[in-house]
Structure formats: C-alpha cells, structure tokens
C-alpha cells in the first residue's frame, strides 16, 4: 500500500546547519498494516512522515502509494491518498471556521473545488452521526468555531477529518503528544477504533514506548535517519519496553536518548 525506496533528505546542505534527516529509508506497508514508529529526538520519524506527505521534495528515492509514484507530486495533490493528524492540535483545523465547515472541507479532499454550495444537508447528518460516535458532545455544536474547542477535541476532529474520506495511508505524527494523559488515552482509543473499523493502513509516530507496543501489528524504530528495527506479528506482541531499550542500545551502540520515552 505504501512503499518507500531509499528515501534521503538533507536539510540545509552545505551550511553549518547541515542535517541528514533521512539516510536511505526503505519501508513497505501491506494493506491494513498499523505500524508504530519510535525513535529518539531527531531520528527522522516526523521527517519520514513529511516525506510521504510531500511537505518537501526528497533528495533521492521514491514514494509509492498504492502503486502510484507520488515522488514528484505536490503536497495538495497527494492529499487525496493521505489522512494526516499532527502533533500540534492547532495545525489540523481552521480555527476561525465552524466544525461542520472543517468537516466539509475534509469531505472534499481529493476532489475539485467547484462553485457548488460548500456543505449539504445530507453531509451535515453524516457529520452529526460520526461525531456522536466520538462521544465528545460535538454533534450538537456543528456550527461552533473550532477555535473554541479544547486540544483533545481538536485532535479528535482532525482524526475524523483525516478519515472522513478513507485514506490509502493514515499518518499520525505524535498526535497525542500535546495532550494531557487522560485526553491522550481517549484520542488513542478513538484512533484504534477508526483504524480497525476502516482497516486503515497506518503509520503512527509516538514518543511513548508503551503506546508503540500496545497499538498496531508492527513496530519500527528509527535512529539517525534510518530504520534500525522492524518487529511484527507474534514477536511484537511479546515486546516489553525493556527489550526495546536493550535492542536500541545493541543496534545503535548508544543509550536511548529521550527522557520523554523513558519517563512515559
């Protein structure tokens, strides 16, 4: 469903700030794969997701989504294949627009924007139903501005927006990291439910090793712009945080350098 072939990306080449963020990343996702991605700060997790989304042009390599080479495709044209939720709850929604307007925009992802009215009655009902399933009380607030919602509500809304049109690949970029633990757990639970319901092929970056182990059918670990560990199936089910840390130290030759991951 998703194939990354030897993806390389260096930021600010030829300057003192030169940083090789991705150094030959190869990854193949089967349809329905739910892959959690862990790694220290600067390991290249978010950069990999952004390379898939087309936020920047990669230096080398190819990105294929469902067999289509999207490497040269602009961000907005790729969007039709992708659902995205970001770390920053402010990023995924338009704060000055209404909840239903945000959803209507997402409902048309991948379609040409015409001069037809931006939202229909039937859609409104669909949105209401979907929001009701979220149990956040948003189904009665369709015309509220998104700027009035809490971070957790916004992330839940962004999640719905990302999956309203079933994406080929769902990209979750530490989408619970900015939330308090209780809200984070709720949003993760919603993510799990949606992914299972639509059998979505998913990449979920997280700082939290426990979450990475508890969710998905496959786990990859990144370090210095490369994938250094790829665990799936029964082997993943048996994983513990200790085993992961040990593996990391063995392969990378250093300690796992993220307090956030250890404390989580």
């Amino acid at each position: 469903m998703l194939k990354l072939e030897n993806i390389c990306k260096t930021f600010h080449p030829g300057t003192v700030n030169e940083k090789t963020a991705l150094n030959g990343v190869n990854l193949t996702l089967e349809p329905g794969d739910f892959v959690t991605v862990i790694g220290g700060n600067g390991a290249g997790k978010s950069t990999m997701l952004n390379a898939i989304a087309g936020t920047f042009k990669v230096d080398a390599g190819r990105v294929l989504i469902d067999g289509v080479d999207v490497t040269g495709m602009s961000e907005h044209r790729r969007a039709r294949f992708l659902g995205r939720v970001f770390q920053d709850p402010m990023m995924g929604t338009a704060p000055t627009m209404q909840i239903e307007e945000n959803l209507a925009l997402a409902y048309r992802r991948g379609q040409h924007r015409t001069l037809k009215w931006g939202i229909t009655k039937a859609e409104r009902e669909v949105f209401r139903e979907q929001l009701r399933a979220f149990d956040l009380g948003l189904e009665d607030r369709l015309t509220s501005r998104v700027g009035l919602l809490s971070g957790g509500q916004r992330q839940a809304l962004t999640l719905l927006m990302a999956t309203l049109q079933k994406p080929k690949v769902l990209l979750l970029d530490e989408h619970t990291a900015a939330l308090d633990p209780k809200t984070a757990a709720k949003v993760l639970e919603l993510s799990d439910a949606i992914i299972a319901e639509h059998k979505l092929t998913t990449l979920m970056v997280t700082h939290n090793m426990k979450d990475a182990i508890a969710h998905g059918n496959r786990l990859i670990m990144m370090n210095n712009g490369q994938i250094i560990l790829d665990i799936r199936g029964e082997e993943k089910k048996a994983l513990t945080v200790e085993m992961l840390l040990e593996q990391f130290a063995r392969i990378s030759g250093s300690e796992f350098a993220s307090d956030k991951a250890l404390l989580a």
Partner: peptide, 28 residues
C-alpha cells in the same frame, strides 16, 4: 454566495490555516 461555495470555503481555509488546507488537498 461565493464564500459559501466549495471554492470559497477552500479560500477561507487557505487564509485560516494554510497547513490544514494543504493537508486537505487544497491548492493554497
């Protein structure tokens, strides 16, 4: 009328949050 249409709404989204607009397939 125009700002209520699909195109008008995408224009508003572009101004409100270009990041979100691009992620929803809008040519900002």
């Amino acid at each position: 009328w125009f700002f209520g249409t699909e195109r008008g709404a995408s224009l508003r989204a572009t101004g409100a949050n270009a990041h979100m607009a691009a992620a929803q397939g809008i040519n900002t």
